[in-house]
Design a protein around this nucleic acid. Structure first.
Length: 118
DNA sequence: GGCTTGACTAATG
DNA sequence: TCATTAGCCAAGC
């Protein structure tokens, strides 16, 4: 059957995989950069996940559902982005406390690397 | 082809 | 809880 996610059609190289994986996260749920990286097959590329999202311009990707392992929003200088992210998450039912969210309660179990078997 | 940058993570103090 | 350090890896120049 048609593969659930085809990284290549979502973008070039690594970024496309990141977008595809992040797109799997349903509203009201959260994932960490490490989770996305692990879903891609390499937990060590968490940094690259953030880098990929930083270059993201597609509203079709719920980038705001991706936070760091500490349950905090990190946008590395883009404060406006952080405000938007927090607002969207709260809009989806995610509760924030002291700038941190309840990652334990909202964490979404990402599936293993998007099956692009070929 | 090599160096630098970067929305991270885990460990330590 | 916060600050610092070391490690990993892809994209850009």
């Amino acid at each position: 059957m048609e593969r659930p996610i085809k990284p290549r059609v979502c973008g070039p190289g690594f970024q496309g995989r990141v977008y595809a994986t992040v797109s799997l996260v349903p509203p009201g749920r959260l994932v960490t950069y490490g989770d996305v990286a692990a879903a891609l097959g390499d937990a060590a590329v968490a940094r690259q996940v953030g880098w990929a999202l930083a270059a993201l311009t597609d509203d079709g990707v719920p980038w705001h559902r991706v936070i760091n392992a500490q349950g905090r929003i990190s946008v590395r200088g883009d404060d406006a982005r952080a405000v938007v992210q927090a607002a969207r998450l709260e809009s989806e039912g995610v509760r924030f406390t002291n700038g941190r969210c309840d990652l334990r309660a909202h964490r979404f179990p990402l599936p293993s690397a998007p099956s692009d078997d070929e």
